[in-house]
């Protein structure tokens, strides 16, 4: 059993990776949810699945459909950009990206 601080650190790190800031208050609830989440994991662990392949789609299905390489010229790209909060000369603007 990992101690509460270790859990908090782990969850802080995961939150950071998932692009979230978590407040200390939030972290208390998150730890509780983590605990029950790990119980979910434990329930699954107790089930034997050694020869089983993961089910990715609800049922086994294949297609042979591919799209023909045809262009559809859209004319509303300026409308699409309207949803961006910051633009400049038809570009979307962001703070300098450090490579």
């Amino acid at each position: 059993m990992i101690c509460i601080d270790a859990k908090k650190n782990l969850l802080k790190e995961i939150s950071h990776q998932a692009m979230f800031d978590v407040s200390d208050n939030d972290l208390i609830d998150l730890v509780k949810e983590y605990d029950s989440f790990m119980k979910c994991v434990a329930i699954l662990e107790s089930i034997e699945t050694s020869d089983i392949t993961p089910l990715i789609y609800p049922y086994e299905i294949e297609t042979n459909f591919l799209r023909e390489d045809c262009i559809v010229h859209e004319t509303h790209h300026r409308d699409i950009l309207k949803n961006a909060k910051m633009t400049q000369d038809c570009y979307i603007k962001v703070p300098k990206v450090v490579k």
Partner: peptide
């Protein structure tokens, strides 16, 4: 493997 894929495996068992 332990979480996501495990869940997908048990999903198959149920299906």
């Amino acid at each position: 493997e332990k979480m996501f894929r495990k869940a997908q495996k048990v999903r198959r068992l149920i299906v």
